[in-house]
């Protein structure tokens, strides 16, 4: 084991850091074009760095403002998924009634056979669009995996012994069966969040790319790509810049999580 800087870690941080920075700080510094600016200006003209898109908006400005919705929706969907999935998983793990556990799992497993994108598309097709539905839909499809994860973390053989010791010490049920397992699951959940964030980003940006998400005028990276789809040859940078940002965000995050996990478990 050498102590030299880890290449994967450096590459991962750079890849994930740039789009994250753009998403969080970008909106404060983003250049904007006045209303009525000519659409599809080439890069470097009329005070723009990367030109304008089909609506005459500054492409650099879009890149800098469009990440906030990506990050915000992802955080929202993850928070909702954990808020619902964690107690559900804990309850299934805690129950002594096996039929309840089985029934609960079967119920959340129904979500397992619905491809994530399909859920968001069907929601959109029936007029359920916008921030709220995106978050609900993206959170819903994470539930089966989450509930199973929490349930098995709470039920891990190591946990059982702690639980038994607490029963013997006369601790109340909620402490031995809900609170203590919840504490134990925190680590597993943190690890899971690292990998799940990419899945959520993917399904959310893909839905936006397919026009099944936010308003067409949103600067969201996925929406901008969708709206500018026809100007691929005229002004490729309007599509390529947000696409590259999404690529970097996803690849970087996954590399980072994977490497950090790897350090904990293997080698």
């Amino acid at each position: 084991m050498t102590r030299r800087p880890d290449a994967t870690l450096v590459v991962g941080s750079l890849l994930a850091g740039i789009p994250l920075l753009a998403a969080l700080v970008g909106p404060l510094v983003a250049p904007q074009t006045p209303p009525g600016t000519t659409p599809l200006l080439p890069p470097g003209t009329e005070g723009t760095v990367l030109g304008t898109d089909v609506y005459g908006r500054d492409v650099l400005g879009l890149a800098l403002t469009g990440g906030l919705s990506v990050v915000g929706l992802t955080v929202g969907a993850l928070a909702l998924a954990y808020a619902v999935g964690t107690p559900l998983g804990l309850l299934l793990a805690a129950t002594r009634r096996r039929w309840l556990d089985t029934a609960g799992l079967r119920l959340v497993d129904v979500a397992l056979v619905l491809p994530p994108l399909l859920v968001l598309l069907v929601l959109a097709a029936t007029g359920r669009r916008g921030v709220l539905w995106l978050i609900v839909g993206a959170a819903f499809v994470q539930l089966p995996a989450l509930v199973r994860l929490v349930r098995s973390a709470a039920r891990a053989p190591g946990r059982l012994a702690v639980q038994e010791a607490q029963i013997q010490a006369g601790e109340p049920w909620w402490r031995s069966h809900l609170l203590e397992p919840a504490r134990a699951a925190v680590g597993a959940l943190a690890v899971d969040a690292g990998t799940r964030v990419v899945l959520v980003v993917t399904v959310l940006t893909s839905a936006n790319f397919l026009g099944a998400g936010l308003e067409p005028t949103s600067p969201d990276w996925g929406v901008v790509i969708q709206q500018n789809g026809d100007s691929l040859f005229l002004a490729p940078e309007t599509l390529v810049v947000p696409a590259v940002l999404v690529v970097a965000l996803c690849a970087g995050t996954n590399l980072l999580t994977d490497r950090l996990l790897d350090r904990r478990e293997y080698v």
């Binding site: 590259v244 690529v247 690849a251 590399l255």
Partner: peptide, 11 residues
């Protein structure tokens, strides 16, 4: 790891 993470529309 990186390839697996990238959404298809972006790549």
């Amino acid at each position: 790891t990186a390839g697996q993470a990238i959404p298809e529309f972006a790549s």
